[in-house]
């Protein structure tokens, strides 16, 4: 049975690969669905992209290997964003700009829940958290 597998990942392309139709190949060769959340090619011709990649777990892994074989570095967004639990006040202000709803208030406990698997690393929370509790470390600058 096929299982839907989905992750938000950050890709870093070297100048050599940034001109290749990698996304097209992912879809065509591995039957993966992609949703580009952010993309940029800098003046040095390096590419940065954040996308949500979905398919079966097997296809997802094959697709990821394909990217890595072609020199694309892959980083899971969930692993590159963090919250300083000591510092967080659980006020809830960050939820105002978290469109992905990775940060939301638990209505029972009134604590702010951070679901990193939903995070698109947009970085808005890092700019508005009053106590600077949110940190994003993503390859490349957006």
């Amino acid at each position: 049975m096929k299982k839907e597998y989905s992750k938000i990942i950050a890709l870093h392309f070297s100048p050599e690969t940034s001109r290749l139709p990698m996304m097209y190949n992912l879809a065509k060769k591995f039957d993966l669905t992609f949703n580009i959340l952010k993309a940029r090619i800098n003046p040095k011709e390096e590419g940065h992209m954040i996308l949500e990649l979905s398919g079966t777990e097997e296809d997802y892994k094959k697709g990821l290997s394909y990217l890595q074989e072609h020199g694309v570095s892959v980083q899971e967004v969930a692993q590159s964003i963090s919250r300083d639990e000591e510092s967080c006040l659980h006020c809830g202000l960050c939820t105002s700009l978290c469109i992905a709803r990775a940060l939301c208030l638990d209505l029972k406990t009134r604590l702010v829940i951070f679901d990193s698997s939903k995070c698109t690393a947009c970085g808005q929370c890092t700019r508005i958290c009053p106590v600077n509790a949110m940190h994003v470390e993503i390859n490349g600058d957006f």
């Binding site: 006040l89 659980h90 006020c91 809830g92 202000l93 939820t95 105002s96 208030l105 209505l107 009134r110």
Partner: peptide, 22 residues
């Protein structure tokens, strides 16, 4: 506290500034 309120016919997300937990 329920998370959203209706204002001018629109369901608007409610965002706290005060920490209820603290």
């Amino acid at each position: 506290k329920s998370g959203q309120v209706e204002i001018e016919g629109k369901k608007v997300p409610a965002v706290p500034v005060t920490s209820y937990a603290l």
